[in-house]
Design a protein around this nucleic acid. Structure first.
Lengths: 191, 191
DNA sequence: GTCTATAGAAGGATAGAC
DNA sequence: GTCTATCCTTCTATAGAC
């Protein structure tokens, strides 16, 4: 049995990714989650803002798992990077450029508008960076480089998501993936 | 004398950058532009969507000018790149991380929702890429590399804007700038 | 053709029945 | 404590006065 609260969070995370924060209504959320309207305010007294912040964290954890699936037990950091960017491109094409980063749209929308939601998105990005940083350390990259490389990869893929969706083309993702692999490969070589 | 239509477009472009598409109401636009409500539908019969698409193009042209100010008559492509990323970081800090890309938020919001606005944002990104590509050719970069380098720079700065705003930190912009300069410098060397 | 008033729907939030 | 009915605001859009 799936708890009402979890259904609400799942539905919200999904709607936020596709429609953004201001594009998602509470009424859509109750419809999608098949929950009564009052349940939102029972479980999230802070209203839409509290629900949104929590949904961002839920979406973030889903992606933590995806990241770890590619990087945690990889044999080579560069190969894992290549597979990750390739996979992102495949998903983009399969979903007609709808499924990209689950929180980027919301993060930009709320950055200067809602401090709790900005903080939530910041923590999610940080947790992704932490995952990749640790994985790169495990995979033999010099520790002092790991975090910067992880941040560069995240910037490249977020930029690629933006351009790919706006152009309906995976060309940017191919360029981003190629550059990401170059960076990882270079960082792996001890200086 | 400034035409009503232009005032509406300027106000819309500014609001879209700060609040996004769904976060900006037509009533805010008429208030900010000091125009009567009916004027919007007089000048933009297609309503908010047509106005939004046009405002995206206006914002795009403003940035075309900014890009050219840095790259068009530069003496060195790498130096110009460095100055551009530095400048972006300075503006972010000065505006408490509010002023970043004028169209990124809207582009993500509308990518899967409004075809006319998606097309407009795609054209704007394309025009920025075209500018930088031409400038790099002029500055001596091998022509076959210019476009890919320009796209990489755009992805890096868009990713940096996202992370900088979510973290309220310019660390990502510094990393992005550093990597961008490295890429440009490497591309300038004939192989 | 400039501007006001208002329609009609959807937004977030709340009160209170059960 | 689950759920419904409803409140008030804001949204986009339009009708029509001047």
């Amino acid at each position: 049995m799936v708890k009402t609260r979890d259904r609400i969070l799942e539905a919200t995370a999904e709607l936020l990714r596709r429609k953004g924060y201001h594009g998602t209504g509470l009424k859509q959320i109750v419809k999608a989650s098949e929950a009564p309207f009052g349940s939102i305010y029972h479980h999230f007294p802070g209203g839409k803002e509290e629900l949104g912040a929590e949904a961002i964290r839920v979406a973030g954890r889903t992606y933590n798992a995806l990241i770890q699936a590619f990087f945690e037990n990889a044999s080579d950091a560069a190969e894992a990077t290549n597979a990750f960017f390739d996979g992102a491109g495949v998903v983009l094409e399969m979903t007609d450029y709808e499924d990209a980063c689950p929180i980027a749209t919301v993060a930009l929308e709320v950055a200067s508008v809602s401090e709790p939601m900005r903080a939530a998105s910041g923590e999610v990005f940080e947790s992704w960076i932490d995952d990749v940083t640790r994985d790169f350390e495990t995979l033999g990259m010099p520790p002092e480089r790991c975090r910067d490389v992880a941040i560069e990869l995240l910037m490249l893929i977020e930029g690629a998501f933006l351009l790919c969706r706006s152009w309906k083309s995976i060309e940017p993702m191919k360029i981003a993936g190629s550059r990401a692999v170059d960076t990882v490969r270079a960082a792996l070589i001890p200086s």
